[in-house]
């Protein structure tokens, strides 16, 4: 699949990564070559094959319903680029 500039722009927007206009073409070329290369998988018939979801071989482990964490705002706010009191602060959002 060859990706065009517009598609690259669209996925960059979805991924929230700013891509300079000047790099769109070369990036489209790189991504297209990767996609073309991975498309060799289409040669395999996977009709009845179940997808493998993860590397685990086991059952989902569960934990008991108990409060064992939290209660330390400083621990989660320590690295915040911008904070006000015990809030994280971000540019204003208009809903």
């Amino acid at each position: 699949m060859a990706l065009d500039r517009a598609t690259v722009k669209k996925i960059a927007l979805l991924a929230r990564i700013k891509v300079p206009e000047s790099e769109l073409d070369s990036l489209a070329g790189e991504l297209s070559s990767i996609l073309t290369w991975v498309e060799q998988l289409n040669k395999i018939d996977t009709g009845n094959v179940q997808p493998m979801a993860g590397g685990g071989h086991l059952a989902l482990p569960k934990r008991a319903d108990a409060v064992t964490d939290g209660g330390a705002p400083e621990k989660v706010l320590a690295n915040a680029p911008e904070r006000v009191e015990t809030y994280y602060a971000v540019p204003k959002v208009v809903e």
Partner: peptide
């Protein structure tokens, strides 16, 4: 597709 091939 990739997850199916992974199974194989």
């Amino acid at each position: 597709k990739a997850q199916r091939v992974r199974t194989l």
